[in-house]
Design a protein around this nucleic acid. Structure first.
Length: 157
DNA sequence: GCCAACGTTGGC
DNA sequence: GCCAACGTTGGC
């Protein structure tokens, strides 16, 4: 079992949207490094931290679980879609999706600022300059540290 | 809106 | 294969 962080812009698709939908296909990934991980390494049962980016308070906001491993992203074949890719074919698809289901929305979100302050997250990928990958794996240690930052906040606010 | 840090594209 | 130009991401 592996841990992942998936970035999303809440204006586009938020943890509340996932909570409402229960399940969703993680479509629209159009970066080769992210694609390769999505296609080859994200496995059923893996745990996903949902991260809101490009918003007022960038934060880890909840958890999801992978319920289906990679298969072709239909949006690449849809000329109406913003994710359409004219070079992709059904026989040779270029982009992939996984399915995730909602697990929980954090009572206390863990902000990027909060994470930067944690010594245990010094080498966390999200915090390294220029990190632009929309998804990446994280260690159990980092996962547990983030969960603890949320727990520790209880009673302080 | 600014800008750093990328990734992608395309001419050569 | 190099690299300049351009586009995108995403925090601030």
């Amino acid at each position: 079992m592996h841990y992942w962080l998936f970035k999303t812009e809440p204006r586009g698709y938020s943890i509340d949207d996932l909570k409402r939908d229960k399940r969703t296909l993680w479509s629209g990934v159009r970066n080769y490094q992210a694609r390769n991980m999505l296609r080859d390494e994200v496995k059923k049962g893996d745990v996903v931290i949902f991260y809101h980016s490009s918003c007022a308070v960038p934060s880890a906001v909840g958890l999801a679980e992978v319920t289906r491993e990679s298969f072709p992203d239909e949006t690449q074949f849809d000329s109406e879609s913003e994710y359409f890719d004219a070079t992709a074919t059904k026989e040779n698809p270029r982009w992939f999706v996984v399915e995730v289901k909602f697990k929980e929305k954090f009572t206390h979100e863990v902000s990027l600022t909060q994470m930067r302050k944690s010594p245990a997250l010094k080498d966390f990928r999200l915090l390294t300059p220029g990190n632009r990958l929309s998804l990446f794996p994280l260690s159990k240690k980092h996962f547990e540290t983030i969960m603890k930052l949320g727990d520790d906040h209880i009673g302080i606010s």
